[in-house]
Design a protein around this nucleic acid. Structure first.
Lengths: 84, 84
DNA sequence: ATATTATTTAGACATTTGTCTAAATATCTA
DNA sequence: TAGATATTTAGACAAATGTCTAAATAATAT
């Protein structure tokens, strides 16, 4: 749970998740959407991956990232317990 | 939204929210539940308050904190958009 | 009035975080 | 095999974060 909240605690990373909500994207395509260097985006992707919020698959020269909605469910569950 | 995720990005603060889920507590009662100094807990409560996740009311010598479930709804909404 | 209790504020300090540039690795293409 | 493209790894650095102790503020009780 800790790694998930850590991952969500950054505007850029939340932006990446919102992008991936629409469709899968390569690391480079993601980087193009932000005014941040590619190594920095790579680092953000790593944090999202460690939190299991995204997964990646190598496709030739590219690495394609996609949103992992299973874990999103876990967050919702945790937050909903606060209301009960 | 930024202040909410920032507030949630700490084990102690999430623990405080889970405590307040059960019942309202004074700052001192909250501090007693953690192995952290009172000033540190006070600081955590301040961050939770800024994020509007808790509210506080002075009762004589004590300050009683309670969970603000309205904002919890906002988080759930944001996270659910990731699934749509 | 004075001492005690509850909480916060101030200031210091080590750790973590987000960013960058430069270099390394891997794949594709001519 | 070179050269170009895609991405990550390494290392540095400033800013933010969590913690502490000591002092300040506020309310209660003797």
């Amino acid at each position: 749970m800790d790694s998930i909240f850590k991952a969500l605690n950054d505007e850029t990373r939340r932006g990446i998740l919102e992008l991936l909500r629409q469709k899968d994207l390569s690391a480079g395509e993601i980087a193009d959407e932000f005014h941040i260097s590619k190594p920095s985006i790579s680092h953000h992707l790593d944090i999202l991956k460690r939190a299991d919020l995204v997964s990646s698959e190598k496709k030739g020269q590219f690495i394609v990232y996609s949103l992992n909605t299973t874990i999103v469910d876990d967050i919702i569950k945790w937050i909903i317990t606060l209301k009960k």
